[in-house]
Design a protein around this nucleic acid. Structure first.
Lengths: 108, 108
DNA sequence: TTGATACTGAAGTCAAAACTTCAGCAAGGA
DNA sequence: TCCTTGCTGAAGTTTTGACTTCAGTATCAA
């Protein structure tokens, strides 16, 4: 079924769930690129890159700007904040629960 | 195309890319559950839950153990470490690059 | 022993989404 | 002006993977 994703974190996980998009992200990691500069190494058509960029832009991981006839694409580091918050929230909850459990087990 | 995922982080993103699996993770956040206790709230068959558990177990986010005829499922907090490392690595790289860029722009 | 419960495995269905082709259009250069 | 480059949009194809059904198997309890 896979209900519609709602939260920001949901959309980011959904976006990063695709291997091509993660590779795109890593390409942009070494600096801004145009759409066709991304299509080459990714070995897909420029149209496919456009579609991936749309997804990544929608969830805040990438920003693009059209200058003349080329579209400049770059990463948005703040985009990772939501992901980081997701991890922190879970980690602290899970670890607290485990700690509480082991306290109980230590009872006489 | 979407080539086979190779790294551990890749498999985790792939796993968390699915909304049902994220909900499953959140259910386990409040304590261990059996397969059928998960299937109820998720509103899918036990078979579907089994398949999701397989994925989550393979990437180290969940551990399960069969006791008698019920399979006990629990989270593995360490599973998040890989994800956290992925974020940190990118964040620091991206931010350094941006810092370097703004240094250049500040040049006379 | 019998029946109910809890999962497992194989096999198939189906919809979402990744990707393509193709026909534009606008910008830049010769 | 004319050609090339770089992107865009619509539409269709193909693949992936989430989900189901159904037929087991093992465990537990009466």
């Amino acid at each position: 079924m896979n209900r519609p994703d709602s939260t920001h974190a949901d959309r980011i996980f959904q976006a990063l769930g695709d291997a091509t998009r993660r590779r795109l992200i890593d390409l942009l990691g070494s600096g801004p690129r145009s759409v066709s500069e991304l299509a080459g190494p990714l070995d897909v058509t420029v149209t496919a890159v456009m579609q991936h960029l749309r997804v990544l832009e929608d969830c805040g991981l990438v920003a693009t700007e059209k200058i003349g006839r080329v579209r400049a694409c770059r990463l948005r580091p703040e985009g990772l904040d939501v992901l980081d918050a997701w991890i922190r929230a879970r980690r602290s909850t899970w670890e607290h629960r485990l700690a509480a459990l082991s306290d109980i087990l230590r009872e006489p």
